[in-house]
């Protein structure tokens, strides 16, 4: 994870994402897109465009894959995760 990134932001595991697009459709800021690329399972995975996330958690809660989406909220301090 890049520590210089600006919180909040989502992190989507491109290999686990099944490309259902529910997160893209539920993002109020339209900052998620479907990649042109395919992952190892043949899915066009979802990607964060890199800025504009407001940390609403929609993508997290709408995603059916427990490990696919992590959202680091604005008060996140990296040391919390051990």
């Amino acid at each position: 994870m890049n520590e210089n990134r600006k919180y909040p932001f989502p992190e989507i595991d491109p290999d686990i994402c099944k490309g259902c697009v529910l997160c893209v459709a539920s993002c109020p800021k339209d900052v998620l897109v479907i990649s042109e690329k395919l992952n190892s399972k043949g899915f066009h995975y979802s990607e964060y465009v890199g800025e504009g996330c407001i940390g609403c958690g929609n993508c997290y809660y709408v995603c059916p894959e427990p490990s696919a989406v992590i959202v680091y909220l604005k008060d996140y301090v990296p040391e919390e995760v051990s």
Binding site: I16, K18, G19, C20, F43, G57, Y60, Y61, P64, E65, P66, S67, A68, V69, I70, V71, Y72, L73, D75, Y76, V77, E80, V81
Partner: peptide, 28 residues
Amino acid sequence: TVLRKPLGFIDVYKHKPGAEKDRTHYCP
């Protein structure tokens, strides 16, 4: 401060046969 895979889930899905023990069997 972070939304990630909740601890109510098993870290690695050890009971799931096959190699993909990091993801569910559910359809997209």
